[in-house]
Design a protein around this nucleic acid. Structure first.
Lengths: 163, 163
DNA sequence: GCAGACCGCTTGCAAAAGTTAGCGGGAGGG
DNA sequence: CCCTCCCGCTAACTTTTGCAAGCGGTCTGC
């Protein structure tokens, strides 16, 4: 079992403390804001404790930062690779049922393997690994095709329904 | 206790179990794959335990699904990413042949129509999951310090308006 | 029938997470 | 000076996580 996912508590704590002082609030304030006890937050910041997912979320909320940022700091989530990552897009699609996602993913991976084989490359495609696998050789690691940032406006309708 | 960020353990467990059976592996297999004990995984699936962030991550890896999907299920992360644009991702994938892209796109569209149809009535599929509706507020893609508040600020009202 | 191997689940226990109570210390005000 | 308030931290506790061990049940082969 790859022990890749060790929680990087130190970084996490530093990050939180950094964010907290950037926000100019005291440890106790943040603690009560986040709904945790101040000693505990203190310990988290110093890396003596690994906060649970819930706590992490509450802290993120209190700090007004994305929980994702915290998870990334904690080494729990990988950084977001924005490029056209098909698996990520599929997984992130709110309109697909889980089973459908599974099928699409499998088909996609099968295709990928197929292409790989044709190309004669020996490079193992390691379909299972974290999403990062898809971006290995690719040149453009950029954000997805259409600007991702403006999505605020697009929020409601998102993907058009069908039609 | 502050009833702030209740972990939606039920959903999470169901989701994991769903994914597991979709992957056709036994509880014990997934457990050892994820590096947790089988009893514990069993309890997680039945919603009797709230797995920590680390465990969640390991399970996600073992299931080959994005950790985010799990966090969203757990109610820890908000739905991210408005731009889960599957077609764009497919089209932008350099490793797929045109023919393959067509198949994937068609399948995707078919699924979307299917989901659409079901959306109105009681969903026969187990996917109680997807918060399908709004909430497309994408969170900050990167660890940008502050300025990413919009997404969940709704809940985190209160605090001192320092800024 | 009965080993053996799997399945999922229940039961106690160690080790963490997370809490309340309290310490020493700096700033400000009387 | 002394009193109060807030700061961050330590200490001792309670609660929960997460695990090893063991249970009953099903299926397959002997």
């Amino acid at each position: 079992m790859s022990v890749v996912a060790k929680l990087d508590v130190r970084n996490l704590g530093d990050y939180i403390r950094e964010q907290r002082s950037a926000a100019q609030i005291s440890l106790r304030q943040l603690a009560s804001l986040a709904g945790v006890s101040n000693p505990y937050l203190s310990q988290i910041e110093r890396g003596l404790r690994k906060p649970s997912a819930e706590i992490l979320q509450q802290i993120a909320k209190a700090l007004r930062i994305s929980a994702e940022a915290l998870y990334v700091q904690a080494g729990i989530l990988e950084e977001r690779y924005g490029d056209s990552d098909v698996p990520a897009a599929i997984l992130g699609d709110a309109y697909l049922a889980e089973r459908q996602k599974q099928v699409l993913l499998e088909l996609y991976e099968a295709y990928r393997r197929e292409s790989e084989a044709k190309a004669g490359k020996t490079e193992p495609v390691d379909t299972k690994a974290s999403p990062s696998s898809t971006s290995r050789t690719r040149t453009a690691r950029r954000a997805s095709p259409r600007g991702a940032e403006a999505s605020d406006a697009a929020r409601a309708e998102g993907n058009t329904a069908t039609s």
